[in-house]
Write a protein that binds this DNA or RNA. Structure first.
Lengths: 130, 130
DNA sequence: TTATTTGCAAATCCTTTGCACCCAG
DNA sequence: CTGGGTGCAAAGGATTTGCAAATAA
């Protein structure tokens, strides 16, 4: 994979933040910084970077989002009210998953665990209102 | 919600099988059975049936799939090679998820856990070939 | 140099919507 | 009777692709 200007810009953007980015958001952010880039280039770049394991993909609401790959593996909590994404990791859950897979001779290559609901911030806002 | 001919047909199709159906597949299956139905009707019907909790939705590869709702809660194993979908359920994992959520004051409304990899059948086929 | 990558626009895929007509309640 | 449901076709959003020009190695 060729590390071009554009791909470097995408990578820097993702690596310098803790956010989860979608293609559209990357184009806007880069344009805002004066860096012009086509949406197709972003999609192709993200694919390449994902394959190279330089970024990690996450499907949210039918749309692909990307985050830094230099973090430890983790799963997600997504607030259905404000869209906030929190992260968590549980050794125990990972172990149990492995056990289940082994018992069925299923070779896991990766997994996705997402809890959907209402985050603390949104819950307390509700209480205040009532 | 009105239980029309079309919706009844969709529901029967899903309930009489253990498969995971997408909109396109439902149209084909019903057409094959001589039942004509428009794709828009299927999408709208599935939405209504999901809200009525008569079917359960599952996002696979950016596409929504539906299955019977009269089954106990479960998670999925998806074979990246043949597309087969297996099901599993782990009380322990569910409990751990709850603990994690409680610790963060996150109110879980639902969750999705999917393990991606290679199923037993595909793995043994590979061994045979080598 | 030359195989990749870019940018644009057009195409594709899945899903939703507008609207006139139809039918379940 | 009448409001929700249907079917068609057109619109929509996200993503991919074709192709000529640009560029990294």
């Amino acid at each position: 994979m060729r590390l071009t200007q554009q791909r470097t810009a995408i990578l820097r953007l993702i690596n310098q933040s803790d956010r989860h980015w979608d293609a559209e958001g990357i184009v806007s952010a880069l344009n805002r910084d004066g860096q012009r880039i086509g949406i197709a280039t972003v999609y192709r770049g993200l694919q390449a970077l994902e394959q190279a394991e330089l970024v990690t993909a996450l499907q949210i609401d039918g749309r692909k989002h990307y985050e830094r790959a230099d973090k430890a593996h983790h799963d997600h909590l997504i607030c259905l009210h404000c869209g906030a994404i929190e992260e968590f990791c549980s050794e125990e859950i990972e172990k149990l998953q492995q056990q289940i897979a082994v018992a069925r001779s299923f070779a896991v290559s990766h997994h996705a665990l997402t809890l959907y609901g209402r985050c603390q911030r949104c819950s307390s806002r509700d209480e205040a209102r009532s």
